[in-house]
Design a protein around this nucleic acid. Structure first.
Lengths: 341, 341
DNA sequence: GTCGAGACTGTAAACCTTTACATCGATCAT
DNA sequence: ATGATCGATGTAAAGGTTTACAGTCTCGAC
């Protein structure tokens, strides 16, 4: 209860009747100390309730056993599950996890670098998709810590990346629709700037080509991944009167927009139209109809990224600088056979 | 790029032509050093890119400027937004945030205490609803760090608490239903063990009493806050054929179960029945009908809790040991006037 | 001219480890 | 008997700060 002084290694040494060096060794390299001595030290540790002071240790060893995680928004459910994976793996390996919520604010990003500069963190996990502001500047001559990008790769850089295989996932999704008998499949979420969107569109194209289906440019609509973009794209199709039998959406949020639009027009899903998402975000199972989608292995992504980072920290040079995990097809109720196949 | 040695305070001192003590003062207590000297130090700092080594500083000052957050599941969207608030406030005040995902595993909880014991964290935020395992034991004689409970109070303890005013929120919710003309209002989620449930039920009772409505025990059903419990309770009401015109649910998950049950029975909401939730979790706006509910000010809860903890750390003894924030009524489409009022 | 006060600055200790190097016996090969 | 080797331990330095205390200098009052 009282804030009384904690036991130090000297207290332990005194009780055990050995030097502090021996205590340190008994704790960190048990094999290097005689059995009897080790026993006495262990007892003294128990008696005093000694815990090694992490600050002193970090100061001396020049490493903190801490990892800094930079994310634009920790509250985003998409991230938070990755976070759990990251934390689980780090904790298992004796590392602590420090979080930095940047909100894409350059000032905050730069600020968090103080953890790196001041040795408070040994490595960096980037969920932001770019190097933190202030680290790129060559002038700053700042020392780059070991780091791994997750979820979104850092463009034109050699930062190792762990994420989902978007191309493959979108291909599987499109093939699922094709297997249901769909021939006119729209892709909602075309974008020239977002890497994720581009990869998923490529997967879509690959699946159609693989099935010998022509790609109709009129069925490929722009979208930035928001619910509103899904709604707008759907409305646009009705205006132009160019309709598919199935919508493959770049993500679940977009799919939700499509569903909202179709439901407002009194269509019965999936009888009239099939809709497919990507990500399996939390509400995917609660929408009506519940959303068939590709589930991202978020937990495993987190674990994998941390595993890679810790390998980097241990000085290893991993074989592949890009780890892609497979997403899983989750069949729910938003996809069915086309009405008039 | 290279892992070259970082500049120390000595380097700065040498360049500025002063002692290290002066450098330290120039940085930490600028008023205590002459203008000219301060200028020279500032220049030297800029030249070397010096950052003070947090480890050395923490070792010397016996505090780390870190806060440990213990949560059962960081991925839970209910928590993750609180987390953002906690982090925002901490960061603003120069503190870092360390996360510990306990999964309610006693072993993990105990393990995270190493951060406290080893001075790696100065304070503790508890989202778990109980003292970490291994801290309660009086035998361990462990020093209790300053801490604050969030979301769920720590039962029979004097740990300060920051959270939402459940009683008040539930009362407002019930009053909203009453204002719509409802007289037979069910409460789904009675529980003798969960403090949150009890408070919300009390708010419900207070509203009814305040409006001069009798409380019908048959309209108060058990529930543990899960979607399934909401579904089961609703089915149970149909079996007994005791029906309300509105369902006030202990939380959104329960409300979702109620909606699923009613929708399955082909009722039209909110024409046939009104349903109200509590929490405003992310999918509340995506369900059909979208859910009228009480929104928890999660971000502010997080900020408030961190603010309180930092006050504690600063040695202040805050007036009230319990901070209750008001929830906000979010009107959507699941509540309407009763059919035959 | 002396003294005191006040403004700056410097010296050195303390914070608690880890670890290179030295020491000391004991064992063993020669 | 000598020297080498080896295992176990101790000594002391180093890691980079903060800060109590002491010191120096200037200036004004007497």
């Amino acid at each position: 209860m009282q804030h009384r002084k904690l036991a130090t290694i000297e207290d332990v040494a005194a009780i055990a009747g050995v030097s502090i060096a021996t205590v340190s060794r008994a704790i960190n390299e048990p094999t290097k100390v005689a059995d009897e001595t080790r026993r006495r030290v262990a007892e003294a540790v128990a008696r005093t309730g000694y815990t090694t002071n992490a600050m002193a240790r970090s100061l001396r060893m020049r490493r903190s056993n801490m990892i800094l995680i930079l994310a634009p928004d920790v509250g985003d459910p998409n991230f938070s599950n990755i976070l759990v994976g990251l934390e689980t793996e780090a904790s298992k390996r004796g590392y602590g996890v420090l979080i930095g919520n940047t909100q894409n604010d350059p000032a905050r990003e730069a600020d968090y670098l103080r953890f790196i500069n001041s040795n408070q963190a040994d490595g960096l996990i980037l969920l932001t998709g770019h190097l933190p502001y202030g680290i790129g500047a060559a002038g700053s001559a700042m020392r780059l810590p070991p780091m791994v990008a997750v979820n979104e790769p850092v463009s034109n850089s050699d930062v190792p990346f762990v994420g989902v295989d978007n191309f493959e996932g979108a291909r599987i999704a499109a093939e699922h629709l094709i297997a249901q008998g769909h021939r006119r499949i729209a892709f909602i979420g075309h974008s020239t700037s977002k890497a994720v969107n581009k990869l998923r569109e490529q997967g879509y194209r690959a699946a159609l080509s693989g099935a010998g289906l022509a790609i109709d440019p009129l069925l490929i609509l722009d979208g930035d991944g928001t619910t509103e973009s899904g709604r707008a794209a759907t409305e646009h199709m009705f205006v132009r009167d160019v309709l598919p039998t199935a919508f493959l959406c770049v993500n679940d949020a977009t799919a939700l927009g499509v569903i909202i639009s179709l439901t407002a027009r009194k269509y019965d899903l999936p009888r009239d139209f099939s809709v497919m998402g990507f990500d399996d975000i939390s509400f995917a199972s609660f929408v009506t109809p519940s959303l068939t989608t590709m589930k991202q292995p978020r937990h495993r992504i987190g674990e994998g990224a941390m595993d890679l980072l810790l390998a980097l920290l241990a000085g290893e040079t991993p074989a592949n600088t890009e780890v892609l995990l497979r997403s899983e097809l989750i069949v729910r109720n938003s996809v069915g056979a086309p009405r008039r196949a």
